[in-house]
């Protein structure tokens, strides 16, 4: 293989990082962790990933990719088919239009913005779920999920940051 081709292949590989992290998190989400007191509620991991990559590398995370990954999550988790990609696409659309505001801001500001986004996504999911099932969904598990998601965001961001750094260094 010519060096140019190797370089191109290398670039493709590293540019797959955002999609790969989300795919990995889809599996992490559906795996039964069974932590005591966890109550079988899992944080919205892929929402964190879509949030992070939409702000920092929107060029490597297309709407089509988010649609496909969200659909896979719905198929595996037994959610109403289309609910996750709908919420994720709307989050991604809003973030891409607002990313200029968030770029270069302190981590605290970004975290607070994530809290608003997570809350908005949960409310949207609640409304969509309630319309889909024709009965109001219990709000408590959803609130628990939002709190868990917001609290775990810094840890996940650290991991995304490492992956992002590797992308910039080797890509």
């Amino acid at each position: 293989m010519s060096p140019a081709l190797v370089q191109r292949f290398n670039l493709y590989f590293w540019n797959l990082i955002p999609v790969a992290t989300i795919l990995l998190l889809v599996f992490v989400t559906v795996v039964p962790w069974r932590l005591p007191g966890f109550g079988a509620i899992t944080p919205a991991f892929i929402l964190m990933a879509v949030f992070y990559w939409s702000i920092y590398r929107p060029d490597q995370l297309s709407y089509v990719a988010v649609f496909c990954l969200g659909t896979v999550q719905d198929l595996l988790s037994g959610m109403p088919l289309g609910m996750t990609p709908l919420v994720l696409l709307i989050v991604q659309g809003i973030l891409i239009s607002q990313r200029r505001f968030l770029l270069g801001k302190s981590f605290f500001v970004v975290w607070c913005s994530f809290m608003i986004v997570a809350l908005g996504a949960a409310i949207l999911s609640w409304v969509v779920g309630t319309v889909f099932f024709g009965a109001p969904l219990a709000p408590v598990p959803i609130v628990v999920q939002v709190v868990m998601t917001v609290l775990l965001y810094p840890a996940l961001t650290w991991l995304f940051g490492r992956a992002h750094l590797a992308m910039l260094r080797y890509g």
């Binding site: 989400t29 559906v30 795996v31 039964p32 509620i41 595996l76 988790s77 598990p141 959803i142």
Partner: peptide
């Protein structure tokens, strides 16, 4: 064996 869990906030199923 239970190999997957729906996450619990919107549906409660396991695979």
């Amino acid at each position: 064996r239970v190999i997957a869990d729906s996450g619990g906030a919107f549906v409660r199923t396991v695979l």
